[in-house]
Computed example of a mutant assay.
Amino acid sequence: MAALLSRVPRPTRVDLWLALGLLLLSAGSTALIEVFGPLPEDRPAWPWGYALILTACLPVLWRTAFPCTVALITVVAATVYYPLAFPDGVVMLSALVMLYTLVRWGYRIFGWLLGPGLFVLLNVYGLLTGGGLRADTMATLAWIIVLLCVAEILRWRDVYRRADREREEESARTREEELLRRASDERLRLARDVHDTVAHNISLINVQAGTALYLMESQPERAAEALSTIKQTSKDTLTELRAMLGVLRAVDESAPRAPVPGLERVPDLVEGARGAGVAVELRVTGQERRLAVGVEGVAYRAVQEALTNVVRHSGADRAWARIDYGLSELLVEVTDDGRGTVGPPAPGNGIIGMGERAALIGGTVDAEPVEGGGFRVRVRLPVDGGPARGQGEPG
């Protein structure tokens, strides 16, 4: 019995307050009618009337977990209550709530069959038993149909808004990918410029160096001019390289030509680290969802850089990667059991580049040794705040 109860889902806070409110309204209205305005034909509500009220209201606790089952129990109990001549309270309110819930949440056919169907059956029962059609029952049926129509309208409005929001997100994602493609093309252009500049100037330096060696004894003045040209050319080359590499700075990686990798490719990184001999465990918590391209790209690069450091430098046997989808923040954490560092880690291109990419979208990076051995990299990225459309490259 205890095991069975442990598998029953806990009611949500909304369902708890809704069930409590319906129970108080239904039982309270019945009690008030019995005390202040009883009708001669009313039967005492205690105990069976209140039992039906409890049966109609209590299942609403599990409205979210079992909407169809709860609606069936609630509607049947509330509908049966009235023909038994108990005081005419607001027991039907719980049935109305569940019928509205069914249609609003997408259980349309069941909701439309359950609501009007039971009232039609009750009126047929009344005709067969000689009771005739009750005006109040027909009015209630009309109100139920109006309620179901309102639920349909609101449901379609939600569907339209959801589709409109998805279109906006897709449009924003397309714009982001276009900007990233243009940035990639620009980086490729700069890479070609670097190649052309270096190839040209190095060739010039090579020719001038040969000339200087050839003329050093016979024509020292021309040899000095060649050496001067070499000095100026090498200075210009270094200046241009510094300017271009400030944009193109990348480690062990060419300019991207494929779609920007996201969190869906993190398992590939984990498998790669495992293939290198490190037992990596990946854990994903929170509600997984598609994030902005910039956020997913920065998170992917952070995991990539952290696992690369684990494989190359840590000497670790095991590592743990965690991705936590928060409501307003994405947390990426990689921890290993390797040698760690003594004191703060020496700043390298990897950690610096990771911090720069995170800072572009308003995030932070913490890299520090773990007490007792090992090293931890923790990256926090805003999900919906700041300029969350950036995309950096590894440093």
Rank of each mutant, 00 (worst) to 15 (best):
C68P: 02
V70S: 06
L58T: 14
L58C: 12
A65K: 03
T79P: 07
Y81E: 00
D88Y: 10
P83F: 10
L61V: 07
M92C: 00
Y81F: 07
L54M: 13
V75C: 14
V60A: 10
D88I: 07
I53K: 02
L96Q: 06
T55K: 00
S94L: 09
G89S: 15
M92V: 13
T79D: 14
P67E: 01
A77D: 13
L72A: 15
L52P: 00
V90T: 13
A71C: 00
A95H: 04
L54C: 09
A85H: 12
P87E: 10
F86G: 11
A95P: 06
V70G: 01
W62K: 03
L93M: 12
V60S: 12
T55P: 02
V60F: 02
A95T: 04
V75Y: 10
C68I: 08
C68R: 14
I73N: 00
L52M: 12
V91Q: 02
F66A: 13
P59H: 12
C57Q: 05
Y82A: 15
V80L: 13
R63D: 05
V75N: 11
R63T: 05
A71V: 02
L52T: 01
I53T: 08
F66Y: 15
F66T: 07
G89Q: 06
A77G: 09
P67L: 08
T79R: 01
G89W: 04
T69H: 01
L52W: 07
P67N: 06
T64C: 07
V60N: 14
L72T: 07
G89R: 04
P59E: 14
F86N: 10
V70Y: 10
I53V: 15
T69C: 07
I53R: 04
S94C: 09
V60G: 05
L84K: 10
V90A: 14
L52A: 08
I73Q: 00
L84C: 10
A56L: 09
A78K: 00
P83T: 15
I73T: 02
A65G: 07
I53A: 01
T64Q: 12
Y81R: 05
A65Q: 06
T74M: 04
P87A: 15
L96S: 13
S94V: 15
A65W: 08
A56F: 08
A77I: 10
A85D: 10
I73F: 08
